[in-house]
């Protein structure tokens, strides 16, 4: 099959989502920090929504042990997660505008997120999660932050929720299921929480952004 044109792909999104909503989505810029179980799922959902710009940040490479819950394939093993995610996005949405940062976010380089309207925290380490949320809230008080806490183990799916903490901060997860206690994050828990995060991004954009 021939590659659809950019215009055809946009028209298909408009037809499904409605012109006004699609315009908002296509004008929005969203950063995903961490491309593991949460971030790989969030990113694919955001690409399918037709988000105007995706800023993807991860310093890690795809490992065989990631395939249980992260959206990579065997062919991606050994690649930078940013490059592997780019390959996946482009296979779904070939005209997506994607910016890759193959690095670890610190307070010194957090400005790579300055173009984002919304920041998704998708790390696995609790201290890194808190670090990003605190720095981002302090440095970018007008940006929206959608973070995650508690999706490990095999608890009831209905325990994973989205909570609005401030006008600009949302937390997804059950708030307590720690990988240190539960041992594993399963593909389903990662998808549930990632879907909450991506859906929150969709709600923020459709409710608050101008078309």
């Amino acid at each position: 099959m021939n590659l659809p044109t950019e215009k055809e792909m946009y028209a298909a999104l408009e037809k499904r989502h409605g012109a006004s909503i699609q315009k908002k989505l296509s004008n929005a810029s969203v950063a995903v920090c961490g491309l593991g179980g949460l971030g790989s799922n969030i990113t694919i959902s955001l690409a399918r929504l037709g988000i105007g710009k995706l800023i993807l940040v991860d310093f890690d490479k795809v490992d065989l042990a990631n395939l249980n819950r992260q959206q990579y394939a065997v062919k991606h093993i050994g690649m930078n997660k940013t490059d592997a995610m780019y390959d996946i996005i482009k296979s779904i949405m070939p005209y997506a505008n994607v910016e890759l940062h193959n690095k670890k976010i610190t307070k010194d380089n957090i400005n790579i997120l300055s173009q984002a309207d919304i920041i998704c925290e998708a790390f696995d380490d609790a201290q890194s999660k808190a670090m990003l949320v605190n720095y981002a809230a302090e440095l970018f008080p007008q940006k929206y932050i959608v973070c995650a806490s508690g999706m490990a183990g095999i608890g009831c799916a209905n325990n994973i929720i989205t909570r609005k903490i401030t006008e600009h901060l949302f937390v997804c997860g059950d708030g307590k299921s720690d990988i240190a206690e539960k041992g594993s994050v399963f593909s389903t828990g990662a998808m549930l929480c990632a879907a909450h995060q991506a859906h929150t991004v969709l709600r923020i954009i459709t409710e608050n952004f101008d078309a």
């Binding site: 961490g34 593991g36 179980g37 949460l38 971030g39 998708a122 790390f123 696995d124 380490d125 609790a126 201290q127 999660k129 808190a130 949320v133 605190n134 809230a137 302090e138 973070c147 995650a148 806490s149 508690g150 999706m151 490990a152 903490i165 401030t166 006008e167 901060l169 937390v171 997860g173 708030g175 307590k176 299921s177 720690d178 990988i179 240190a180 539960k182 994050v185 828990g189 990662a190 929480c193």
Partner: peptide
Amino acid sequence: GEIIPKPQYSAVILNDGDTVEVISFVGGG
């Protein structure tokens, strides 16, 4: 309704009438 910057934790005093939320992150992602 505001996130308190970390460097202010030792200076900010909890007052009568405040509503506070402590988000304690757990690992996994």
